[in-house]
Simulated scan of single mutants.
Amino acid sequence: MRGVAVALVAALVLVTGCDTGSGSNPAEPAVTPERGQLRVGVGNPIETTPLRLAVADGSFARAGLDVRLVEERDGQDALDGLTTGRLDVAFATDETLFTAVARGTALQLQGEAYTSAPYTVALVTLPDSRYTDLASKKAPKIAVSADGDLGTLAARSIFATAGGDPDRIKFVTRRYEDMPAALDDGTVDAALMVEPYLAKIQQDLGARVLADSFRGATLDFPVSAYASGALFAQANPRTLAVFRRVLADAQQRAADQSLVRAALPRIAGIDSTTASLVALGQYPTSLSGVRLQRVADLMHGMGMLDGRLDVSALLPHSAGS
């Protein structure tokens, strides 16, 4: 009888130990990571709010991961961090990541950070600008944060939808903080801005929205994601599985926008009034190859990628389609 009891206990341990379903508590490690520390690059504070909150509240620590956040200057800084080994996981726009892959950088996606909603990114002008109709300028000068990034794709898409020729847009790269000055001195006709800079320029300068960037082909559009180098992902599958699991839970909690807005004054360095005004998108709880393929296909259609990119090849084997 004692042998039967021992066998039953062993069977129960085996069954419960194999239960790694989505309903498990993220605070209880389902697997043992290969490493205890993960250096994760972060950028736009709104788009990375769930990750930042999960680090601050100890969610990653309880799952066995010491996540160290490293502030990135921009998407290229993030990719450089992965290449040099300064970062293990990096945040960037989907456009930045897909452009890097098309140029030969081996990456694996680890989570979607942010998906658009109306007026989360918009083309703006100052109140006294005579540029009031998107189609009225055949070759507008538009400020974007980086050439070939989200702003470039969004501006080309909305300009094409308005009946213009996106190839005639003259893009001028400026940091978001410097775009108001570029609008004021006439360097650009309009600026493609994201939150929280969008809410701030409207609040401070009365900026006018010339066009919402996420309509038509870009409605509910994927914006940004987290990625690691392919070799790092191959060597650390359990570590990254834990990262994805805790991130997914944090993204789910961020569906409560009040939690995000309450955190923005501390995370984004904006006042509570601006935090209450920013337009918020969605925080996906899973990697979707189908959803992300929209970005790659639109980039290809707009001439930003020479060939069609198969996004499913960039997903971890455990991720859904």
Rank of each mutant, 00 (worst) to 15 (best):
R168S: 15
H300Y: 13
L309P: 00
S228R: 00
R103E: 14
F232H: 10
D185Y: 07
F243N: 05
A255K: 13
F159G: 06
A122D: 10
L210S: 06
V124K: 07
T218I: 12
V15K: 11
A100M: 12
D80R: 09
A78H: 12
A182T: 06
G111A: 07
Y176R: 04
V260P: 03
S24A: 13
A313R: 15
P29M: 05
L314Q: 05
R244A: 06
R294F: 02
M299L: 11
R2Y: 14
I270E: 02
A211G: 03
L51W: 00
G164N: 03
L134E: 01
M179F: 09
A233L: 07
V67S: 03
T84C: 13
G303E: 10
R103H: 14
F243M: 00
V55F: 05
G41E: 05
G307K: 12
D133R: 15
V290W: 08
D249A: 10
A5Y: 11
V246I: 10
L198I: 06
A225N: 03
G58E: 07
G148F: 05
L305Q: 04
Q108M: 10
D249M: 08
A11I: 11
Y226R: 07
L240I: 08
V124H: 04
R86W: 10
A113T: 03
M193F: 09
A279Q: 07
F98R: 01
A262F: 06
G206A: 04
A296N: 02
A217R: 10
D220N: 11
S276P: 08
V70D: 04
R39N: 02
A182P: 06
L231S: 15
A268Q: 09
G41I: 03
P265N: 14
M193D: 09
A182C: 10
M302L: 13
A181N: 13
L205D: 06
A254D: 07
S136R: 13
T93V: 12
V194N: 01
R253K: 10
S24K: 14
A263W: 08
R52Y: 00
V42R: 05
T32A: 11
A30M: 12
L87N: 04
V4H: 14
A207H: 02
Y131K: 07
Y176N: 03
T105Q: 12
S22T: 14
S136H: 15
D184Q: 05
D149S: 11
T132N: 15
